[in-house]
Design a protein around this nucleic acid. Sequence first.
DNA 1: ATTGTTGCAAAAATTTTGCATTAAG
DNA 2: CTTAATGCAAAATTTTTGCAACAAT
Lengths: 132, 132
Amino acid sequence: MTMVRNTRQRQAVIQALRETQSHPDAAWIHGQVRSVLPSISLGTVYRTLDALVRDGVVMTIERAGQATRFDYKHGGHVHYHVVCRQCGAIHDVSAEAVTLPSAGLPAGFVVQDVRLEYHGLCADCAQPEEQL
Amino acid sequence: MTMVRNTRQRQAVIQALRETQSHPDAAWIHGQVRSVLPSISLGTVYRTLDALVRDGVVMTIERAGQATRFDYKHGGHVHYHVVCRQCGAIHDVSAEAVTLPSAGLPAGFVVQDVRLEYHGLCADCAQPEEQL
DNA sequence: ATTGTTGCAAAAATTTTGCATTAAG
DNA sequence: CTTAATGCAAAATTTTTGCAACAAT
């Protein structure tokens, strides 16, 4: 019987995620946690984050060539993401009004996570090219 | 005035994408295109795919640590993706019934691409652990 | 002619992994 | 005690880039 151990590393990673409003990447989390556990390794941060994602308490925003961003599901609140392709800024969008189709999925597929992402340019990055 | 040149490399990459029903990665596309243009480099495939994504004619499914998968928008048909976390299989889901919220986005954000992804386990990978 | 593209190869970056050691339960 | 989890460092992968040569317009 496999049991998850409540290590200090795990606690610290979870706390770091809980404390931030941003959507940090593994390196940022590592930096934060280091102030509490100076010897924690980046590998452990990655392994812990993987576990949290599998447990469904953390969401990810994944972009090729960019570090994965992690997002703690505060209170299990369902929400989606707005991602700026230029600067990488990520904003949350509450999911109140969204009704996603549950039909049309392949037979037998077990949904573990639904992601709705709007990719584009944030207000700052979209501003018309000032006269160059 | 920047103009896109219709190179043979670009044509070949587009054709490879059009011909497949799968959601190939850059390496697969490179392999395909090589049968027509033996000397095309993987770098060029990546650059071409980037351009096609920017042009909005190709969608991507991006996963950390996994090669990005590319999907040609045949006839501009809007659809979403079902992704198996285990085996990486990707299925399309038509978007007919979906009504996505256009409100709630940050002011001034310019949406270029909307992604709806269902992540989980496909029927094969989800089958209950046979008695081990 | 111009200059956007290519091929090559090296580099950058992110994420994963093997293994001996540590520590949670 | 047991064995899941850690730290370290190396490895594996994917993606990006600099630059001289090439080719589309």
